[in-house]
Nucleic acid binder design. Structure first.
Lengths: 197, 197, 197, 197
DNA sequence: TATGAATGAGCGTTCATTCAT
DNA sequence: AATGAATGAACGCTCATTCAT
């Protein structure tokens, strides 16, 4: 009789171990042996759950981003329109000590995206989802009169997302220049310009 | 007398080889053997010019950015104020097929910055330089009446630079979403908001 | 269940391969590749059993000396007092064709001892053990009246051990001058001076 | 017109540089580049004075030992018989802080001797010279009545030299056990046994 | 003769992957 | 399914030696 194990739970364990390692030491820190040790599971078993290192990385990224998407959805259920967008960007797209790890994983992901088509595909999917979410929030804001009618919602969704990508990046690599408070100020200032005066 | 060679020219040769390789295959592609082969020189000689791989990478980054700084200086000599800033950002901070390689190098650099203090130091230096340059242009613009008096120049320099960092990043990793024309539009739209109406 | 192997047996295999190589070509001959080949195992597996070359060398030395200590213990069980000491020194601290290899390993060890603290520590431990063993034998000899009462046992233990170190060294590097028979004569002559006339 | 240089003086400079390096870091520390740097001469020139590294090492050893032989000769001119021998062994064959370097070079030499015939030849020559010198001193001592008539001079020359080799070795690798004072005591005690009571 | 650049084989070590149990 | 031993290619780096000037 085979041992009964939760296949997916094991995969998640490995994925989270990989993420911790990336956050700490970058991709170089992610050796298969280190992942197994971090996960507290045996080395050999890693290859039962993932056929290769790349597959493990893909899974780790997917897991990491799905957590973030979940949190984003919470905001959009609790708030709406510009308010929800501000929460989304200021609470989650921001770097501070506790979110630094996720951002490090994200930067690592971007690096892979620029190099490997398989990662690029996944990235495009993710971005499209986020842009759609932002666009919806902006449409809500327009309908409720928070922002001007002549604001081009597609354009601004792209702009605001791109902007917050820059803020996240800079907050990660030069935190002295862009502490959390300054990141929020930059975002708020931008959103204010969209608001009906 | 020893064989006469231009020490710095050899270093540049290696640095450019390293940059090509980074652009093509990322850091994994940059093995010392590959760099030597790409530069058309022998493996051993690489270590006459650089004591370690990190030193080579640092030099390659410095070389790459100094080229960009040179071009930036040209714009600031030819134009001034908001005009110069727009040229700077739209002509140089933009991704297109010909500048993709430099941006890939930059993204790789950022990845190292997030992990290694020595790279972070160099990054801070570079950013401080660029921010100073942008601030100066904004001050010029304010004095010549191109932008409102109540614009906070320090804040906007940071904002505009951070924004263009996001644009560059997104243009690199998702070019279908952000082709060159769209990148320019995003920047122009932002600068327009600063302009005296 | 993993492949079942005797971890310690594999370590011994590698250690003995290292000793053969040292005896044949000195430290320069001990490359990790050569050790693996000599042991008849693959290169990579060497690093499962030893984390570094130094660790391998330390283990090889320890293995080599423990064999000698074992033989020494046999003498001290079979004989006692001056008789045991004479057997110990004349049968084992002597160089001949069959023990040349162990002595070559020992000389190589001494060379490392003079340079690396970690080897020096191990050396001190070994010497202290041997000195203690010799001192005990001399005390036995004194109690049984084989040597004079006024012999300083501590001093003579040191003297006799130091002397035999010199004999071993010279026998190794200049065998024509100090063949096995002459080595024994030197030792016997020294021990005779301690004997009650 | 060729530059006038003292060929031998340059060779000595390199040889002394090599010896310093051996004393500090053993053979591994002796790279051709390090020797040139230590000698304050150019890398390339090293190969004008020595055709290979081995030749350099041989020369360095020869130089080092000839210095010691010179000092030995001084003692034999100033003193004679047992007195001279005691000075020879206690002043020069002894390890203390200032002579540690020469002994480290000597141990390194022994290591090479055990491995390479060319070094072994040189070693035999040196030892034969020293043994002859000691034998002469013992004969003098016998003629002047310092030591018994029935002492076998050949045998004791060998014994005393072998003993002092052991003392030097142990003093180098385990100085805590055999400080300079103890080394002298061991030698004196041995010589006393030869003395006419 | 003097200089230091050029070369490539070789080093210790790491690592993803395979495989026997 | 689970384990960890086995494998060998690849890495950054060192180095004696050769060679062009």
């Amino acid at each position: 009789m085979p041992k009964i194990v939760d296949h997916d739970a094991q995969r998640v364990k490995f994925a989270e171990a990989a993420m911790s390692l990336i956050a700490r030491n970058g991709l170089e820190g992610v050796t298969m042996r280190a992942v197994a040790a971090e996960a507290g599971l045996s080395y050999g078993s890693l290859f039962h759950y993932f056929t290769s290192k790349d597959e493990l990385l893909m899974h780790a990224i997917r897991h990491s981003t799905s957590l973030q998407t979940q949190r984003a959805n919470e905001y959009t259920h609790r708030y709406s329109g510009l308010k929800a967008l501000e929460h989304l960007l200021c609470d989650d797209a921001i770097i501070n000590d506790s979110s630094r790890d996720s951002w490090m994983v994200w930067l690592t992901f971007l690096y892979k995206v620029a190099l490997q088509p398989s990662f690029a595909e996944m990235h495009a999917e993710l971005i499209d989802g986020w842009l759609g979410r932002i666009r919806t929030l902006l449409e809500d804001a327009q309908q409720s009169g928070d922002i001007e009618d002549d604001v081009n919602v597609d354009f601004e969704a792209l702009a605001v997302w791109t902007y917050s990508a820059g803020i996240g990046q800079m907050g990660l690599v030069y935190p002295a220049l862009l502490p959390a408070a300054m990141q929020k100020e930059l975002i708020s200032a931008y959103l204010d310009k969209l608001r009906v005066q």
